[in-house]
């Protein structure tokens, strides 16, 4: 098991290097630091001196890959590539371009609110989707099943933005149950969490129920389900012990892959509900055209995704006795 995990981690390294090179290319080759400075400084008639100062303040005044003016290791380390890109590997994200804040500190601060929305959302969504899908499959072949599938397609066809806007309008403005946006510390935050979580669950029902239904139906058609029925087991036991248990393997591993990425939060939800998480952090950075933050988030996102893949592989070996490590 340890060897297996080590090998998977070893596989992840070249991929992270690839991501690092990709972001470096995207952020420093497509446009030069000068271009970024001019963009940031905004006005059309920027003096070269202002540009140089902007670059100096943020450490973009070094050469990209090779510093001929230095000696020894410094020729390599005193470059943008080393300072801005390689340092990401030790999670040293540097300071932001727009307001000179420590990005690492901000990320740590903002992880909590993101998770406060994402984890309840994931769990509630999973519970609702699974139970509804199980119900629909229980009535398979009837009109209930047919109309449930049609309803799912209709729900899928509605834009996610509509769910949020309509939900905010209905719950916050018409019914005045909960505040429509904001966030608090501690238990107070619950009243801010309920609405985004509920809207997230509702928006996901269509696709969630539909995909879980197909997983269940696939397992229902297997030979061992027939064996279970031939034993004389009742339908409930067949469903739970044989169908659900086998269908849970792809479902759960599908959940595991997104688990680490939950940290990143959801861009749209957080900006709509004014939640100070990583999602709104990213949105603000995009709006402020803060390249340092976007760069950090891209790298962090890839690390978390690769971590998710690793956890998926491990959870497969735990959940499915057929898979053996090798």
């Amino acid at each position: 098991m340890i060897a297996y995990i080590l090998r998977r981690v070893a596989y992840a390294v070249p991929i992270l290097i690839g991501v690092n090179l990709l972001t470096f290319w995207l952020f420093f080759f497509v446009n030069s630091p000068d271009d970024m400075a001019r963009m940031q400084l905004g006005t059309k008639h920027v003096t070269q001196a202002a540009v140089e100062q902007w670059k100096r303040e943020r450490g973009y005044d070094r050469p990209l890959l090779w510093n001929g003016g230095e000696t020894g290791w410094r020729r390599f380390t005193d470059t943008i590539f080393y300072e801005k890109s390689l340092r990401l590997f030790v999670f040293d994200f540097g300071i932001s371009d727009s307001d000179n804040r420590d990005i690492g500190y901000d990320i740590r601060q903002r992880m909590g609110p993101s998770l406060a929305i994402q984890i309840p959302g994931l769990l509630a969504g999973l519970a609702v989707d699974l139970s509804l899908a199980l119900l629909v499959v229980f009535f398979r072949g009837t009109y209930l099943d047919v109309w449930a599938v049609v309803l799912c397609v209709v729900l899928i066809s509605i834009s996610g933005l509509f769910y949020i806007i309509a939900g905010q309008f209905l719950a916050g403005k018409l019914l005045r149950w909960v505040p429509i946006s904001g966030f608090g510390a501690g238990w107070v935050s619950i009243k801010f969490i309920i609405l985004p979580v509920a809207i997230g669950v509702i928006a996901g029902i269509g696709s969630g129920v539909r995909i879980n239904r197909t997983f269940f139906l696939e397992e229902l058609g297997r030979d061992f389900v027939r064996t279970a029925r031939a034993k004389g087991l009742d339908e409930r036991r067949v469903m739970i012990r044989h169908v659900l248990r086998n269908a849970l393997i792809p479902i759960l591993t599908g959940v595991v892959v997104v688990l680490p990425s939950l940290f990143l939060g959801c861009l749209v939800t957080e900006s709509f509900f004014g939640i100070p998480g990583l999602g709104s952090y990213t949105i603000n950075a995009i709006a402020a055209q803060d390249f340092a933050i976007v760069r950090a988030m891209v790298f962090l996102g890839s690390v978390l995704y690769i971590l998710g893949l690793l956890l998926t592989d491990i959870s497969y070996t735990l959940a499915d006795p057929r898979i053996r490590l090798g």
Binding site: I15, G18, V19, L22, T23, L26, F27, V30, N31, D35, M36, R38, M39, S261, L264, L267, T282, I286, Q289, F291, V294, R295, M297, V298, G301, S302, Y305, I306, L309
Partner: peptide
């Protein structure tokens, strides 16, 4: 490698760069 960058972030980064280029 491409897949491991979250799609929205990759698009955000690329579009930002495009904006800079166009500006």
């Amino acid at each position: 490698t491409l897949n491991s960058v979250p799609g929205v972030l990759l698009i955000a980064a690329a579009v930002l760069m495009l904006q800079v280029y166009m500006a």
